[in-house]
Design a binder for these strands. Structure first.
Length: 593
RNA sequence: GCCCUCGUAGCUCAGCUGGAUAGAGCAAUGGACUUCUAAUCCAUCGGUCGCAUGUUCGAAUCAUGCCGAGGGCGCCA
């Protein structure tokens, strides 16, 4: 099954789609075009509160045709005689809307198609080579809540992009280079390698960093040592490189432990730290110079991309080589663009980086375009996210006060989940409960982060994150667990009901069917905007629609065997979509909780 | 001073490719459990969609200007 995306990023309907709204859209388009007497009319199909769907196209077309919207709607309706296999009812309503009610057999047939499809109706898209830059913790620094966002959002985008058929390259651009390493290496030497290794392997990266920083700030002799150590490091001195590598390895071990605990896909193979681009940096300058883009400003080498100004209203430069001759992050970000496009042949570069970097990245992309390194159809996108705020609504900065350590956060979430499960389901053996608590606790943390619009600031709240009510991970997992429980209790294999075409009678059954068939659209929309919260909203709506069905439509106690079989099929498909949807967010679904 | 993002119910958030009466959850109130796991469901309560003007048949959604919050603005990354 192929769902193609047009160059406007929107989904174009294809006959093989299992999305009833798409099918309706392409079918009604013909009717609208017949009335308009020209091609390219959008019927403007939307979900509706007054019917299963509504077509708003008549209102827009009325002016062009010099008729009233209701006249246009009536004319379109007259063209829809052949639609009876899709819609059981079409009527004109209000100022000129077409209210459409789907034929039950049509919906049931689509459900069967989705059920027969291991991809649950999610089509593959035209393949692109995508490089996604996310997580990016700093060596010898603790991962904190800020890293949580980029890591969790990036991981979920990786899963979705891969699933729809893109070739995805993960890059973890760790901060493993630059001036702080002078002081870090000198501090390592002061402590002694063995003691430093013990210190760092305990995961107390911040303590190590702070000690080094304190010495640097208060001790001039140490400052001198640190500065000359940086020179040695950048000059490629063997012993210095060895010590540097030691620091990097100890840190990445810690990162890997966190990634594994979180169930994030990043591994050592994805490491592409700043140091990896070191050899490319001089080239960036020479190439910009050859292109005539390089200018001198206050002793630094800079490029002036148009459209940026500083406080005084003067053109704002992107500094690519400092007055002292050193490179900075602009240089290395430009090297990244070159490397990702030239060496990796990527055509889409995603940067899951905090919103405060917007101007910097925008300038880097502009300079890359000016230099001809980034051309259509290749594109770079800043997948920006907002700050993590405390309950006081102030930014949670690692500097000020006590930073919330990543690992402590996850452990507390798991502990709380464990306590909840123990109290709600005391018969569950402890070993099983521990496994489930891990899924629930970590799922809660991830879902809390993913379920709000990423560009907005995010209020970090223990209570809400771990609450088992409302739009939370545990609620969704619970809906899934309840379905599994039905099958477990009845001793029925899930696979055994997959040859059944459901019979949709009750309103809750129809609602559930329509929601299930919207999965593909939700995933495509989520990817189109790089906004996981859209998928979260869909899954939450699916779960609430399911629980309404669950309350109103008895499954195992259904009045006859056909209804029972039909409802079992609906349950199974719902569980599969919940499971797949949450999997695309990087969240696991326990079978009981 | 300039630029960017955000402003929706008491709280936390959806909705923003313009469509009918703006939706959830939490909190508050009232119901439904010898259960297909009540970690749930149903109902009630709660909103000048920051303000104003404009575009349009139609604006929470688009444009412009204000107000408020946060962020960014030359050698940290």
């Amino acid at each position: 099954m192929i769902t193609s995306i047009g160059n406007n990023g929107r989904v174009m309907p294809t006959p093989s789609s299992t999305d009833p709204l798409l099918i309706l859209s392409s079918t009604l388009q013909t009717a609208f075009e017949a009335v308009a007497g020209r091609a390219g009319i959008d019927p403007v199909i939307r979900p509706s509160e007054h019917a299963d769907a509504q077509a708003n196209g008549a209102l827009a077309l009325a002016k062009e045709l010099g008729q009233s919207p209701r006249q246009v709607a009536d004319a379109v309706l007259a063209q829809c005689a052949g639609l009876t296999d899709i819609c059981s009812s079409i009527e004109v309503a209000g100022p000129g809307f077409l209210n459409l009610v789907f034929n039950n057999d049509f919906l049931a047939g689509l459900l069967k198609q989705v059920s027969d499809d291991s991809r649950l109706g999610i089509g593959k898209v035209t393949k692109r080579k995508v490089v996604i830059d996310y997580s990016a913790p700093n060596v010898a620094k603790e991962m904190h809540v800020g890293h949580l966002r980029t890591t969790v959002i990036g991981d979920s985008l990786v899963r979705m992009l891969t699933f729809v058929g893109h070739d995805v390259i993960r890059e973890n651009h760790i901060g493993d280079w630059g001036t702080p390493f002078g002081m870090l290496i000198e501090h390592l030497l002061d402590l002694g390698e063995t003691k430093a290794a013990e210190h760092l392997s305990l995961g107390d990266l911040d303590g190590f960093y702070k000690q080094a920083r304190a010495k640097f700030d208060g001790d001039e002799a140490f400052q001198d040592r640190a500065r000359s150590r940086v020179v040695l490091l950048q000059g490629g001195d063997d012993e210095t490189r060895r010590l540097w590598k030691l620091l990097v390895n100890l840190s990445t071990q810690h990162f890997n432990a966190v990634y594994e605990l979180l169930g994030v896909l990043l591994t050592d193979n994805d490491l592409m730290g700043e140091s990896a681009y070191n050899d490319l940096l001089p080239q960036v300058i020479t190439r910009l110079d050859k292109l005539g883009l390089l200018q001198q400003s206050d002793g630094a080498d800079v490029v002036f991309p148009p459209g940026y100004t500083n406080r005084e209203g003067d053109p704002l430069p992107l500094i690519v080589q400092k007055g002292q001759g050193g490179f900075n992050y602009a240089t290395s970000d430009l090297a990244c663009v070159i490397d990702r496009i030239d060496r990796l042949n990527a055509d889409l570069l995603l940067y899951v980086v905090g919103a405060p970097q917007a101007q910097h990245l925008s300038m880097v992309f502009d300079v890359a375009r000016m230099a001809g390194w980034l051309n259509e159809p290749n594109e770079a996108v800043h997948v920006a996210f907002g700050n993590v705020l405390g309950s006081d609504r102030k930014m949670m900065k690692s500097r000020s006060g006590d930073p919330l350590k990543f690992i402590d956060l996850v452990e507390e979430a798991v502990t709380r989940a464990d306590e909840s499960i123990a109290s709600k389901n005391p018969n569950l053996p402890e070993a099983e409960r521990k496994v489930i608590a891990q899924m629930v606790g970590i799922g809660a943390v991830k879902y809390a982060d993913l379920s709000t619009d990423r560009v907005r600031d995010y209020v970090f709240d223990w209570e809400r994150m771990l609450s088992f009510d409302g739009n939370t991970g545990p609620y969704l997992q619970y809906a899934h667990a309840r379905i599994c429980s039905i099958f477990r209790r009845a001793g029925i294999e899930r696979e055994s009901v997959r040859n059944i075409t459901p019979n949709l009678v009750e309103p809750q059954e129809r609602e559930l069917a329509i929601k299930l068939l919207a999965f593909n659209a939700a995933v495509i929309d989520t990817i189109d905007k790089y906004s996981p919260h859209r998928l979260c909203t869909y899954i939450y709506e699916l779960a609430t629609t399911f629980t309404a069905f669950y309350e109103h439509c008895p499954v195992l106690k259904a009045e006859d065997e056909n209804i029972r079989q039909s409802r079992l099929a609906l349950c199974d498909l719902t569980a599969r979509v919940l499971n797949q949807g949450l999997a695309l967010l990087g969240i696991e679904t326990p079978e009981q909780m």
